[in-house]
Design a protein around this nucleic acid. Structure first.
Lengths: 212, 212
DNA sequence: TGTGAAACTTAACAGTGTTCACTATTTTTG
DNA sequence: CAAAAATAGTGAACACTGTTAAGTTTCACA
C-alpha cells in the first residue's frame, strides 16, 4: 500500500510541522505567545485542523515538554564518560544549571509548570513521567558511585539525590521566576545572577565534599 | 432595596472588599479561577468598577502576594524567640516548608509565579521586593549568629543563605508543581511527599551541622 | 434647584481554547 | 463507472479572559 503509506507519512508530517511551529513560537516568544490560533497561522492551517492531530493544547505542551528533555539528555550525554563519580556529580549539577540559563523557557516547561504533570496524571496513570525518571536515575547512579568511594556515608541514596536535585532546582527556579533578580537588587550589589548561583553551588559542593 | 443597602454599607473600603473577594476565590478555587469578572460577581459590582480601585489584574495579584507574606511573617514570629541560632535556623526551614504545604497557592504566588516580580520591575524600580528582603534578612541574621557559634567556617554568609533558601525552596517548588508526586510514583514506593521532603531536609541539616 | 464631579455600568475590542456542523476531496465498493 | 463512504480541512459559534471608551446614574454643594 504505497498510497496508504504516503498518506500516513503526510499525516505524521503535519503533526510534526504543528509541533515545529509550536516550538518556534515557544522559543522565540515564550509560553504566553504559543496559542493554538498562532500555531495555526504559522503553518497556514485553520485552528480546528490542529485538533485533528493533537487532542488539545496540553497535548502539544506535553510534546514540547518531551522535546525539552531530549535537549537536556543531549547535554548530559558527554558526562557519562566522566570517570570520577564525584567529578561527574559536580559536572551534572553545573550542566543542569547551565541548561536552565540557556533554555529558561524549556526549563520552566520541564520542571516548574504544573500543566505537563497534570497532563500525565490525567492521560496515563501508569507510565508516569519517564523523562524525569531517566534523569533522576542518572543522578541516583552517580551518587551510588560516589558512595562506593566513601562519600555520603550513612546517608540514604535517594534522600541525598532528592536534596541535591532540590538544591540545584531551587537555584534555577529562583532564577527563572525572577525572584533571584529582585532579591539581588536588594541584598547584594550587582554581582550578576549567574555568579551568585555559581557561588551557592560551590557551597553545596563544599557540603557534599565534606561527607567523605 | 438590597442594592441601596449594599451601597450604604461599605462604600469607602470597596478596595478592601475587592481584595477580600479575590482572596476568597484564590484560596478556595486557585489562581486560574480568580478572574476580574468573578471577583466582580462576588462583590456584586460590574467588572469595570474594579479598575477604579486597582490599576489592572497584576495590581490585585501583587496585593495578594503581599497578603501571603503577611501570613508567612506571622508563622515566623515565634521563631524569633528561639535562642540557639542553629535551632532557629532549623526551625526556620521547617516552618518555611510547612507554610508551602499549608498554603500551596500562596506559596506559588509568593515564590514561583513570575507575575508579581514583573509587577515590581514595572511599577516600582526602586523599592523592590521588601517582603522578600525581610524574610531573607531574617535568614541572613540567623546564619550570621550560627557563624559566631562556629558554624559555616570559611563560608560567605550570603552564599550560605542563598544555598539554604534554594535547597528548601527547591523542595517546596517540586511539591507545589506536582513534580515530586510524579517522581515518587516512579522512583519510590508510596512514602508520602511530606515525609520525603522531611528526609531531604534532614540531609541538608546534616550537611549544615557538619560545618562546625 | 441647578451643576459638576464622582461612582458605576453598558457595550465593545481583541484575544483565548474548544466544538459542531459543514464542505470539499479522495478512496472504496457494488 | 457511478454511488457510497471515509478522510481532511474549515467557518462560525460558544464561553471564557483582561481591558477600555463612552454613557448613565447618583449625590453633595453652591
Amino acid at each position: 500500500m504505497g498510497i496508504q503509506e504516503r498518506k500516513t507519512r503526510h499525516k505524521e508530517d503535519l503533526r510534526k510541522r504543528i509541533l515545529e511551529a509550536a516550538k518556534k513560537l515557544f522559543v522565540t516568544a515564550g509560553y504566553e505567545a504559543t496559542s493554538i490560533r498562532k500555531i495555526a497561522k504559522e503553518i497556514e492551517f485553520s485552528p480546528t485542523t490542529i485538533y485533528l492531530y493533537y487532542k488539545d493544547k496540553s497535548d502539544i505542551i506535553y510534546a514540547l515538554h518531551q522535546e525539552g528533555f531530549q535537549l537536556l539528555r543531549q547535554d548530559f550525554q558527554p558526562l557519562m564518560q566522566v570517570e570520577s563519580p564525584f567529578e561527574r556529580l559536580k559536572a551534572l549539577g553545573r550542566c543542569y544549571i547551565k541548561f536552565a540559563f540557556t533554555h529558561p523557557d524549556f526549563y520552566e516547561l520541564m520542571f516548574i509548570m504544573k500543566d505537563p504533570m497534570q497532563y500525565l496524571e490525567i492521560n496515563c496513570v501508569e507510565a508516569a513521567w519517564d523523562e524525569g525518571e531517566r534523569v533522576f536515575d542518572f543522578l541516583l547512579q552517580t551518587i551510588r558511585d560516589c558512595q562506593e568511594e566513601g562519600y555520603f556515608k550513612g546517608l540514604d541514596t535517594i534522600h541525598v539525590a532528592m536534596e541535591a536535585w532540590a538544591s540545584v532546582h531551587g537555584m534555577c527556579a529562583l532564577y527563572v521566576s525572577g525572584h533571584l533578580k529582585s532579591m539581588m537588587h536588594v541584598v547584594f550589589g550587582d554581582e550578576d545572577q549567574e555568579r551568585m548561583i555559581e557561588s551557592a553551588f560551590r557551597v553545596l559542593v563544599h557540603y557534599l565534599e565534606s561527607t567523605k
